[in-house]
Design a protein around this nucleic acid. Sequence first.
DNA 1: GACATTATACCGAACGAACGGTACAGTCCG
DNA 2: CGGACTGTACCGTTCGTTCGGTATAATGTC
Lengths: 180, 180
Amino acid sequence: MPKETYVPSLLSLFRQHGYDGATLAKISEATGLGKASLYHHFPGGKEEMVVSVLDYLDHWLDQNILQALSQPGDPQDRLQRMCDRLGEVYDDGRQPCLSAILLLGSARNVFHDRVQAIYQAWIGAIAQVLVESGIDENTAQQRGEDAAIAIQGSLILAQGLGNPSPFQRAMQQLPQELLR
Amino acid sequence: MPKETYVPSLLSLFRQHGYDGATLAKISEATGLGKASLYHHFPGGKEEMVVSVLDYLDHWLDQNILQALSQPGDPQDRLQRMCDRLGEVYDDGRQPCLSAILLLGSARNVFHDRVQAIYQAWIGAIAQVLVESGIDENTAQQRGEDAAIAIQGSLILAQGLGNPSPFQRAMQQLPQELLR
DNA sequence: GACATTATACCGAACGAACGGTACAGTCCG
DNA sequence: CGGACTGTACCGTTCGTTCGGTATAATGTC
């Protein structure tokens, strides 16, 4: 099987255990592949596995978030679609965000540039929607950051409280908050 | 020297490298203590070290945040004092939050209860201020959660963008946002 | 069609290094 | 003296990684 087959398993594993916590033993178990086979698909080892996951995430972001935001129509609807998609990936707040995990773990230095690029693209796309609905450039950029803050913060809090409702509430409020 | 002496070094180390990433070798180097000495002060090993740090954080939260919030005076001033204190611990957004790190790493299960208690106490204290300024109980609780979301989210984003300004802006806006 | 070659996918076993942790013989100091 | 503390050497385990090799299927060659 091609290596892309195993990326979803890897994503789920890194989300659950973090970079250091996702040992080759666990990865082997989760993918059903022996350690040696993992090195056939990912010669660069763990690091390449994460890179593959980030590639996958880039693609997902492009196909879901950025696309939902950039298509024509009512700005609030477009933002709402983004929130719907986010609810899916984060399982309504029960699953943590990989980019935050990579940022806070010991792997920070290794993947920081990739994660930064993801955040920038995301915030930029949100800001673009707001600009199109008449908000000035600077405010739009700040609101884009506010959106990222609300999403990441509510995910953290949902994890911390062991209760997904902060995320759900944040997603519910976000579209109108941004266009306020 | 008493073991409390080394807690600040431990805090800084766990913030930098996470739980898994903070190896005994690094801990030994950071504290200037040999392994034997570390195990003399912390017989429970790494786990006890984190517990000590969490005790320290509990105390800090009590002496700084909770105290600043509970003392009499103008609600907005009290919230402003909290934000000032937060700016100090997080070095104006340049340092990550340990509780978030413990939540997202592989140590989640081990320390989740302690972290949960911290968040609950914190949010409760903020809500209390809002209640005292005439906001109804439910809204106050939600706003308390919003505060936690803004803090945690802006810290993540500051890390992700490699730029502390989202945190600084969030801290600047927070007091009036909560009393809006 | 028959045969050699190559590419892809996979695995068992083992590697050295580093891990968290311990045993013990001191050394310091009241 | 006696207890707090520490340096050194070491334990078993697990880490990420690599080696040597097999099975299968596709591809090329005559």
